[in-house]
């Protein structure tokens, strides 16, 4: 499948990896639907795309809502007539450990609340599920060739302090295998599904963090720097054009290792 002339729906397209993916697709001749919770981010990205001479729409929507998921797909089809690529970049973090202990008594002083657990599962897992489900439905019913992309994370291996996030991201890594297996079972041959598992990436969240902490993170990255969002966008672009990449999750980490040199 060629990027040029295709239509991409990108959730979380208002910043970070999603913004980079949207602009990469525009640069390469695709039409893009930007989905984001924050209208000012949509406005900023659409203004950039307008300056690039690209074609895009923006839809403010919550990916964890069935009604709003249906809405942004209907909008993309109303604007462009088809959907070929879906990239699930919408994601949040609410880091916390399962338990915290009182230093003096050794008893539990705090436990992870549903306020930390549920929003991350809602957006990162349920949101990915709904986006993939309805994207696949549109592609099957439209008869369009397509690629569905989940965004996992290298922290799918299990990151302390991220029980919620890692649980969602390991699911996002597994989802492509199950979905493609079911496509095969149902005779659906026009749609592929893959996952992308980025390592530490130069999004505003990381570049703005404490520089000493950032330096400590980079000590375990063979590449010696953060992965650039555009490098992730280029990997997704390659996957669009290389139809042999299917039913798998690709890591792009710059060589992230556990301390001591074993690749994570």
């Amino acid at each position: 499948m060629e990027i040029k002339g295709s239509v991409a729906v990108i959730t979380g397209g208002g910043n970070g990896i999603g913004e980079a993916v949207a602009k990469y697709f525009i640069r390469n001749g695709a039409k893009v639907a930007i989905v984001d919770m924050v209208q000012k981010n949509i406005d900023r990205v659409l203004a950039d795309i307008k300056a690039m001479g690209g074609e895009a729409i923006g839809v403010q929507a919550n990916v964890s809502s069935e009604a709003e998921t249906a809405k942004f797909y209907q909008a993309a089809i109303a604007a462009f007539g088809q959907i070929n690529v879906v990239v699930c970049c919408a994601g949040i973090i609410r880091d916390s450990t399962l338990l915290a202990l009182d230093k003096e008594t050794g008893k539990v002083s705090r436990k992870m609340g549903l306020d930390k657990w549920q929003p991350v599962i809602d957006v990162n897992l349920t949101g990915t599920f709904l986006t993939i489900r309805d994207g696949a439905e549109a592609m099957v019913n439209g008869g369009w060739t397509g690629l569905l992309v989940t965004i996992s994370s290298v922290n799918k291996v299990g990151q302390v302090g991220q029980l919620n996030y890692s649980s969602a991201k390991v699911s996002a890594a597994l989802l492509p295998k199950i979905v493609v297996g079911e496509f095969l079972m149902r005779g659906i041959r026009n749609i592929r599904c893959i996952g992308i598992a980025p390592g530490y990436t130069a999004t505003p969240m990381l570049t703005g963090m404490n520089q000493d902490a950032l330096k400590a993170i980079l000590a375990d990255v063979h590449l010696g720097r953060l992965v650039d969002p555009d490098e992730i966008a280029r990997l997704i672009g390659h996957a669009v054009e290389n139809e042999a990449i299917n039913a798998t999750t690709l890591e792009i980490t710059g060589g992230l290792c556990y301390p001591g040199g074993i690749a994570k």
Binding site: Q39, I42, D43, L46, A47, I49, K50, G53, G54, E55, A56, I57, G58, V59, K71, F72, Q74, A75, I77, A78, A79
Partner: peptide, 28 residues
């Protein structure tokens, strides 16, 4: 002002643009 879309409907006759835009706005 908030953006709904940019660079849309290339090649579409001007007489059809508003109907197309209304359909898009109705979906969003």
């Amino acid at each position: 002002s908030a953006y709904v879309g940019a660079g849309l409907f290339a090649g579409l006759p001007e007489s059809e643009v508003e109907a197309k835009a209304r359909a898009l706005v109705k979906a969003i």
